[in-house]
Structure formats: C-alpha cells, structure tokens
C-alpha cells in the first residue's frame, strides 16, 4: 500500500497550493446546485396535499439539518486524526468547521420554527427533532467557546478534539433519550419531517439541495482553512511570497 497520498496532507504548503483549484470547483458546483434546487423546489415542484406550499421550507430545513449532524461527526473524525496522527491540517479543519456547523444548525432550527407556525400554529413546539437540534447547537457553542478560551493553538485544537469525541459518543444517547421523552409527553403530534412517501417530483429537488449544501459546506470550509493555514505558517517563505503576490 502506498501511503504518500496520506503524508501529503501533512504539508500545509501542498494543501494551500492544491486547495485553490478545489475551492473554485466546489464553489461553482455549490452555486449551480443551490440555484437549481431553489428554483426547482420553490417554483416547479408540486405543492403538498396536506401542508400546501409551506412544505417548500423542507428544501432548506432538511439539508441544513443533515449537514449540521454530519458536520459534528466530521469534527470528531478530524479530532481523532489530529490526536492519533498529530496532523496539523486536521486540527485546522476541526476549528474551522465548528462555526459553519453552528450556522447550519441555526438555519435548521430557525426554518423548523418558521415551518411550525403554519403546521402546528405556534412558533416553537418541543418536538423531538427540533429539541435535539437545539442541543446540537449548544454542543457546537461549547466547542467554539473552548477553542476561543485556550490561547495556545495546539492545546486548543486537542481540547476541542477531546470534547467533540465525547460529544459524538453522547449524541446518539441524547437523540434517543430526547425521542423517548417526546413520545412520553406528546403522544400524537404531527411530525413535519416524517414523510410517508414523497413523490419523485418533490424528492429530486431535495436531493439537489442536499448535494448543493454539502458542496457549499466544503467550499466555505476550504476558504476558512486556507486563511488559517496562512496565519499559522506566516513566518515561512512560501506564505510571504503568496502575500506579496496577492497584495
């Protein structure tokens, strides 16, 4: 097995040089997919027979919720890579992804609340999914607060790695306990995100939007990581050449 591809990721310079092209491709993909998905979902997809047009919020709520969860998983994976293989780039990825994940969680929560108004008649219902999203937001805030509080860059990254690994182990427990709590207290609420059978015309734009959100996340993450790499390597010659070339 050839491991050079893995070792390359240890070099910030290699990452910076390569990621420019990836960023451009991802940004274009994200823009095209998000635009296509929005137009398709808002204007072309048929309306839901039960919820009418308010169901169109699904095209941002579900992708954002997906991403919020997988981003937290990514934090933990980056944390393991950073702790086990001491890869600096994984540390950078962890700290750069947390604010993006928090904003995705915020979007999912907010659209869920707005969606709740026409469906349930109130802005907020302690529904299992919304509640676990709220807890996820608090988990993200914890990681961000910890990374801001520790001044030493390496210890901050390691501490965040430990915290996000502990959080990921807890996340399924939290999810199941919240669902259980919810079934005990509200036996029969109408669940917005549980669709028995979505027809193809409704489902395809959702898929496009999910893909678009993932590309968007990857592009924004790369943008943040590139800046962070420049800051961390500010004393090296290649960063200096890059700065002089850009300025």
């Amino acid at each position: 097995m050839n491991w050079t591809w893995f070792h390359k990721w240890g070099s910030p310079k290699w990452f910076y040089e390569m990621s420019g092209a990836w960023l451009r491709a991802l940004a274009w993909a994200a823009a095209v997919l998000l635009l296509l998905g929005t137009v398709w979902g808002l204007a072309i997809a048929p309306q839901d027979y039960q919820q009418g047009n308010s169901f169109r919020i699904i095209y941002i709520h579900v992708p954002a919720a997906f991403l919020a969860q997988s981003c937290y998983l990514m934090l933990a994976v980056a944390g393991v890579i950073g702790l086990v293989w001491k890869m600096k780039l994984a540390d950078v990825a962890l700290q750069c992804a947390a604010p993006i994940g928090a904003s995705m969680t915020f979007i999912a929560l907010l659209t869920g609340a707005v969606w709740g108004k026409p469906t349930w008649g109130t802005w907020w219902v302690w529904d299992a999914r919304l509640t676990s999203m709220l807890i996820l937001l608090f988990l993200y805030f914890g990681v961000i607060a910890l990374s801001q509080a520790i001044s030493n860059r390496d210890s901050a990254a390691k501490a965040c790695a430990v915290l996000s690994i502990v959080g990921v182990i807890n996340l399924p427990i939290i999810k199941y306990s919240v669902e259980w709590w919810n079934t005990l207290h509200q036996p029969a609420t109408f669940k917005i995100t549980e669709k028995p059978a979505m027809p193809m015309e409704m489902w395809l734009p959702l898929l496009v939007m999910v893909l678009g959100f993932y590309c968007f996340f990857a592009a924004v993450l790369l943008m943040r990581m590139r800046l962070e790499v420049l800051k961390r390597e500010s004393r090296t010659r290649w960063v200096r050449a890059e700065v002089e070339g850009r300025a």
Partner: peptide, 20 residues
C-alpha cells in the same frame, strides 16, 4: 462558566431519565 457551557448539554440524557 465555560465548564457549564461544555458539560450541561451532555447531562441531558441523565436529566431526562432521572426526572422521568
């Protein structure tokens, strides 16, 4: 305060089961 911020979300399952 940071300790509370980090740990309270992780306490939620215990809270739900205990008070349940």
């Amino acid at each position: 305060l940071l300790l509370a911020l980090l740990i309270l979300p992780l306490y939620i399952p215990v809270l739900i089961l205990g008070s349940g």
